[in-house]
Amino acid sequence: MAHSVTQEIRAVYVPDPANPQINAFINQTPPSGYCATFPNDCKPLSGVRLPVRFASVQAIVPGASERNGAMFSMPAQWRSLVVSHVFTGEAATVEMRIGGFGSQYVLSDTAVNLTGESNDERAHEALWGGRSWWFVTPPCKGAAMFSYGPEFYRFFWRAQDVGTCARQAAFTIPWMSYGYLDVGYELRTPDPLQMSSGLYVGELRYSVGPGMDIDTGDNMLPDSAEVTFRFVLDVQHVLKVDLPPGGNKVELIPQGGWQAWLQSGRRPERLFRDQTFNISASSRFRMSIECEHAGIGGCSLRDAQSGSIFPQVNMSVSLPLSITDDKGQPVQKRRLTETSTDAVFQPALYVDRAPGVLHFEVPSHYMENMIEPDKAKRFAGKVTVIWDSEV
């Protein structure tokens, strides 16, 4: 009974500080088969060996049609599948094509006995009309490496386009088999910067048999009816913010300091502080704030002496140029509030310890009540800045 074969294709994205411009998945599927033995010849393909066996149901005879002889028709076109986040269901698209395939044909007798030639090399050539099995009809092309023995021949053909690749036997072959199926494949993976952290899974199925996706004709029949490629994409994003020493204590002061107020009684126009930070980010994130003392559109401060709460600190953020908002615009003094759920930012590439600025400001209309002659006051409050990767 024909069965199904499943092959897992696993890829991972981990930001690389040494190569921030490279934002792509890395295929971690262990190679096997031809592409594992000859990786340089296989490039740009990756390869796996599948336990799919084919065997003839009748003799292959000279003059037989393609479908009754030795032929391969492989799905060389790009095909797409959806991978979904295992927890959130977030979807992304992966594309795959089979760009090469190979196996080992095994004859019912030695090529020398089947053809009457004097040695293995000449016998295998004579068996297929005087040219080695390496020479195949378009759209296929033989790869660089092959090997053979008295009754077998190992090969790998590149599928340069969709079509049937075949060889015509010059002598009767009572029985023949392919012992396995090597598959060389290419992938187009989604942009990991547009994906959330976590695992994404999906499957792409190829039917096997006469007239199916993987078709070896009406004579060479498979022992598997389906090949399933199960994709597992692992996205491991980075979101890290570093403040300089003491950066968690922000003192709001006038432009130029307090000298103008102390020496001439000139009330400052505003109180402010720009606090730098370094951000490492490889995916979209949201920013908001939490206030110890809530205000309207900002956080309030508490007068330590009277206990009154009224001045308001407005907060905004400026981010590195490679991080934009959801409209693709630079982030310069973008207002942050406790309800700023729309403050979603997206790196264009992996950002590694790039500088940003948090802007704190008490507006001018609070100055008269906050700063009075001969009255010392101290206003304080806690503001929590949230960088949230769960967008």
Results as ranks from 00 to 15, higher is better:
W258T: 09
Q236W: 10
G328E: 06
R188H: 11
H85I: 13
G202C: 00
I22D: 15
V61Q: 10
A294E: 15
I289Q: 06
I323E: 10
M74Q: 08
G298D: 01
V331N: 09
E121T: 14
A18I: 03
K141L: 14
W128F: 15
D16G: 09
P192K: 03
V227Q: 00
A24Y: 12
D191V: 11
W134N: 09
F101W: 12
H365K: 08
S288Q: 13
M195A: 11
A36Y: 04
G63Q: 02
T189A: 05
P51T: 03
L321Y: 14
V208T: 04
E372K: 11
D326C: 00
L221P: 03
A170F: 14
P355H: 07
R10W: 06
D388S: 11
A170Q: 13
E8P: 00
R273W: 06
S177P: 06
I296K: 15
S84H: 11
V48A: 07
E95D: 15
E292I: 06
Q255G: 13
C35M: 00
N119I: 01
V208C: 04
N278A: 11
Q28N: 13
K377F: 01
P75E: 02
A169M: 06
C299T: 07
I386V: 11
P150S: 12
E203D: 14
F156L: 06
E8L: 08
S147M: 12
G99V: 05
T164F: 02
E290K: 14
K43C: 09
V61H: 04
K327A: 15
K327R: 15
S318H: 02
S177I: 12
A111Y: 01
E8R: 04
Q275Y: 06
W128S: 10
K249T: 13
G381H: 07
A348K: 14
P51Y: 02
A70S: 12
M145W: 02
T337Q: 08
V232Q: 15
F310R: 03
C35Q: 00
G209P: 00
S308Q: 15
R188P: 00
Y350L: 09
N68D: 13
V82N: 10
R53K: 15
W157I: 08
G256W: 07
W261K: 04
A166K: 09
R378Q: 05
K382T: 14
T137C: 04
I98Q: 09
Q28I: 02
V317I: 15
E117F: 07
A91R: 15
N27V: 07
Q236R: 13
Q346H: 15
K375S: 01
I98S: 00
K327S: 15
T164I: 03
T228Y: 05
A64R: 03
P62I: 06
G356H: 02
L81T: 00
D388V: 13
F156A: 07
A380Q: 13
S32A: 02
R266N: 11
Y13C: 00
A126V: 13
P347Y: 03
K382D: 12
E390S: 15
N248Y: 05
P15T: 09
D325F: 10
M287F: 02
S197I: 07
G298I: 06
S147N: 12
Q58P: 10
I289N: 02
S4V: 11
I289R: 02
A354S: 11
A36P: 07
Q259S: 10
N19V: 10
N23L: 04
P192S: 08
R286E: 12
Q21P: 02
L252T: 03
D303G: 05
F285Y: 10
E117V: 00
I253H: 00
G99S: 05
A64W: 04
F345H: 02
V83S: 04
S196T: 14
A36G: 07
